[in-house]
Each structure stands twice: as structure tokens, then as C-alpha cells.
Amino acid sequence: RDLEAFAERFKQRRIKLGVTQADVGSALANLKIPGVGSLSQSTICRFESLTLSHNNMIALKPILQAWLEEAE
């Protein structure tokens, strides 16, 4: 599925960039996405391991996609 593929790709890119889950969570606040502050390390972990609810995964995907584009 698309979400699973993105979560795996996100994790691989994050590791390759040398960024921790906690770093991603705090960096999201710097993107200044309306309504989005920082996220906890555990939320990033649960996204990568696909243990969040489907609706949460869908909500987080564009936010994490934006971070990934900014980081690369």
C-alpha cells in the first residue's frame, strides 16, 4: 500500500540523512505548517512502524513528506 511504502521510504531517507526520530519531530515546528507544531519521537516511531491508526497515518503523511522534501 502507498502509506506502507511511504513509511518505509521515509525511514530509510531519515536514517541516510543521519536524523533521529526526535530531530524530525522538533524540526516539524520549523516548517511553520498551519496547525502543526512539533511531534513526539514516539509518534514518528509509530508512523515508521505502521502502528498508528490509518487516519493518523493519512494525516501525518503530507506533513512528513514536507519535512523530507525540506531535508533533502
Score class of each variant (00 low, 15 high):
residue 12 Q to F: 07
residue 38 S to N: 15
residue 31 L to Q: 14
residue 26 S to C: 13
residue 67 W to S: 03
residue 68 L to V: 05
residue 19 V to D: 03
residue 25 G to A: 13
residue 45 C to E: 15
residue 36 V to K: 04
residue 65 Q to D: 09
residue 62 P to I: 03
residue 23 D to Q: 14
residue 23 D to K: 15
residue 34 P to T: 07
residue 65 Q to M: 08
residue 33 I to Y: 10
residue 37 G to V: 07
residue 54 H to K: 04
residue 24 V to T: 00
residue 35 G to A: 06
residue 2 D to G: 08
residue 3 L to Q: 05
residue 30 N to T: 11
residue 63 I to N: 03
residue 12 Q to A: 14
residue 37 G to Q: 13
residue 54 H to I: 12
residue 61 K to A: 09
residue 13 R to M: 10
residue 47 F to N: 01
residue 5 A to L: 14
residue 51 T to H: 08
residue 53 S to F: 01
residue 63 I to V: 13
residue 52 L to F: 02
residue 63 I to Y: 06
residue 32 K to H: 09
residue 30 N to V: 05
residue 27 A to G: 05
residue 3 L to G: 00
residue 4 E to L: 09
residue 59 A to D: 15
residue 40 S to F: 02
residue 49 S to D: 11
residue 50 L to P: 01
residue 21 Q to C: 13
residue 47 F to M: 01
residue 30 N to Y: 09
residue 5 A to Q: 12
residue 37 G to S: 14
residue 8 E to K: 13
residue 51 T to W: 01
residue 18 G to S: 03
residue 7 A to Q: 00
residue 68 L to Q: 11
residue 20 T to S: 12
residue 57 M to N: 09
residue 31 L to G: 03
residue 34 P to R: 08
residue 1 R to C: 04
residue 13 R to Q: 10
residue 49 S to I: 00
residue 62 P to M: 01
residue 58 I to H: 08
residue 8 E to W: 08
residue 55 N to W: 05
residue 19 V to K: 15
residue 32 K to R: 11
residue 57 M to V: 03
residue 10 F to A: 00
residue 64 L to I: 05
residue 20 T to E: 06
residue 23 D to C: 02
residue 68 L to G: 02
residue 12 Q to C: 01
residue 9 R to A: 11
residue 26 S to G: 09
residue 31 L to M: 14
residue 37 G to T: 09
residue 46 R to S: 15
residue 43 T to A: 07
residue 31 L to E: 10
residue 26 S to Y: 12
residue 28 L to D: 03
residue 38 S to K: 10
residue 28 L to W: 03
residue 55 N to C: 08
residue 24 V to F: 03
residue 52 L to M: 06
residue 30 N to M: 04
residue 9 R to P: 01
residue 70 E to R: 11
residue 49 S to C: 07
residue 65 Q to P: 04
residue 32 K to V: 13
residue 23 D to V: 05
residue 55 N to H: 06
residue 2 D to S: 10
residue 34 P to I: 05
residue 53 S to G: 11
residue 55 N to L: 10
residue 30 N to F: 01
residue 49 S to P: 04
residue 42 S to Q: 11
residue 48 E to G: 03
residue 57 M to L: 09
residue 27 A to T: 05
residue 39 L to T: 08
residue 69 E to K: 04
residue 56 N to F: 09
residue 41 Q to V: 09
residue 52 L to D: 04
residue 45 C to T: 09
residue 25 G to K: 07
residue 51 T to P: 00
residue 49 S to V: 01
residue 33 I to V: 14
residue 36 V to I: 15
residue 71 A to T: 10
residue 54 H to A: 13
residue 32 K to S: 11
residue 33 I to S: 07
residue 26 S to M: 12
residue 37 G to I: 03
residue 52 L to Q: 00
residue 27 A to K: 11
residue 34 P to S: 11
residue 1 R to W: 10
residue 52 L to N: 00
residue 1 R to E: 15
residue 9 R to S: 14
residue 4 E to N: 09
residue 26 S to K: 09
residue 19 V to N: 11
residue 7 A to R: 02
residue 62 P to K: 02
residue 51 T to R: 11
residue 62 P to R: 02
residue 59 A to V: 08
residue 14 R to K: 03
residue 22 A to T: 06
residue 20 T to P: 04
residue 64 L to A: 01
residue 40 S to C: 10
residue 26 S to L: 14
residue 37 G to P: 08
residue 12 Q to M: 09
residue 55 N to T: 13
residue 23 D to F: 08
residue 70 E to K: 15
residue 21 Q to H: 15
residue 12 Q to E: 13
residue 16 K to I: 13
residue 49 S to E: 15
residue 7 A to M: 02
residue 5 A to G: 07
residue 11 K to M: 02
residue 46 R to C: 12
residue 4 E to A: 12
residue 7 A to F: 00
residue 52 L to A: 01
residue 41 Q to M: 10
residue 29 A to T: 11
residue 42 S to T: 12
residue 64 L to K: 01
residue 71 A to I: 11
residue 42 S to M: 04
residue 34 P to A: 07
residue 41 Q to E: 15
residue 71 A to Y: 15
residue 60 L to Y: 11
residue 19 V to W: 12
residue 41 Q to K: 14
residue 20 T to I: 00
residue 45 C to W: 05
residue 33 I to L: 11
residue 69 E to D: 06
residue 26 S to H: 12
residue 11 K to G: 02
